[in-house]
């Protein structure tokens, strides 16, 4: 079975970022260096360093949104655990969804280093005050969606996240290195699962194509609005949180997917997709950004369902969390006595 063409080079970039991080730690500037000097020297800002309020707030927003996406992202794929068509696929999917919970946990921990509490972050998700990736507001309608999400959604996430391994905030950069390694493993599993379907019975092939048809444009929209309309981008680039523009990353993703789709034997649903010799890139049709904005604002197919599910789990678990807290309090008193 083929590997995911192009994925090796992304993983190579993660390894390089990890090496750069270790190297940067070895040549740390003296403790008094200003925020600007640290950024200019491409060093890492650490939790106890001084930083502009807007840098702190922007990172909290971004890391929290990323963590929330991992948590909400458990739902669309979790939807197929009970019906996975072989025990091997069931184990792979269960492990993947568990990894997402784990990613959420260490991203929340990274956000907490910026002075925000877990409870505040939970509330911000449950009340819709903070967003999560809009991609998870689309439904998983067939088993092939699990493969398509692995290939396209995890693929887009990796393209987005690999540059974050070099982000200027140390705890986020370190979390992203770990997340990217696991995501790339997930992407390979998704791709291979889709490959089996695309080589399978006529029904399985149709299922695979239908999933690709539904997930292609929402995946392109994951890179955010076009550069001209992107509100947070310029400052974020200057602070070296973000290193490439939305459109640059989107193009990189399209260029990766085209040869992968050929190997899979599925058709990307874009009649205008073609190689542009002059640009050295594929030309492609942009996703519907008005649809993206509708989904971001809460009117996608599953927004209400996803948030209601999370709220219900939170409410149903309240008595358990209270019990754990009461038990811990009683026992600490016993120890003191």
């Amino acid at each position: 079975m083929p590997g995911v063409a192009g994925a090796e080079s992304l993983l190579g970039e993660v390894e390089e970022a990890e090496a750069a991080l270790r190297e940067a730690a070895d040549r740390a500037l003296d403790g008094e260096a200003s925020f600007e000097a640290v950024i200019a020297a491409d060093q890492k800002i650490e939790p106890r360093d001084a930083m502009p309020d807007a840098y702190r707030a922007g990172l909290i927003r971004q890391i929290a949104q990323h963590a929330h996406s991992e948590i909400i992202g458990m739902q669309p794929e979790g939807n197929w655990i009970s019906r996975a068509p072989s025990l091997r696929r069931k184990a792979i999917l269960l492990a993947k969804v568990q990894d997402e919970a784990g990613h959420g946990l260490y991203l929340y921990a990274a956000a907490e280093t910026l002075g925000v509490s877990r409870a505040e972050l939970d509330t911000a998700l449950l009340t819709g005050k903070q967003k999560y990736s809009s991609i998870f507001n689309y439904p998983t309608l067939s088993w092939a969606d699990v493969g398509a999400i692995g290939w396209l959604v995890d693929g887009a996430a990796i393209v987005n996240q690999v540059p974050l391994c070099r982000c200027s905030y140390g705890p986020y950069a370190r979390a992203m290195i770990r997340v990217c390694k696991e995501e790339s493993f997930h992407q390979r599993q998704g791709y291979q699962s889709l490959y089996v379907l695309a080589q399978g019975t006529p029904e399985q092939r149709a299922m695979a194509q239908d999933a690709v048809d539904r997930w292609w444009y929402p995946s392109l929209a994951m890179f955010g609005p076009p550069d001209a309309d992107s509100t947070h981008s310029a400052q974020s680039m200057a602070w070296r949180v973000k290193r490439f523009s939305n459109d640059e990353l989107r193009q990189r993703f399209v260029d990766m997917c085209v040869p992968q789709a050929e190997i899979l034997g599925v058709t990307l649903p874009d009649p205008d997709l073609k190689w542009n010799e002059e640009r050295g890139h594929y030309d492609y049709t942009s996703p519907d950004f008005e649809e993206l904005m509708r989904v971001v604002k809460g009117d996608g197919p599953c927004n209400r369902q996803r948030l209601a599910h999370r709220n219900r789990a939170h409410e149903d678990g309240a008595w358990v969390r209270e019990a754990a807290a009461a038990y811990a309090a009683k026992n600490s008193r016993k120890v003191v006595a």
């Binding site: 979790g78 568990q98 919970a101 946990l105 789990a313 149903d316 358990v320």
Partner: peptide, 29 residues
């Protein structure tokens, strides 16, 4: 046990229950 995925009282417990479900599935296989 897998019914608990994304429904546990805490995120840590979600990970733990999925882990136990995976162990059960591994032994079953």
């Amino acid at each position: 046990l897998a019914e608990w995925v994304s429904r546990a009282p805490t995120l840590e417990e979600d990970v733990a229950l999925a882990n136990i479900a995976l162990d059960q599935l591994g032994a079953a296989r």
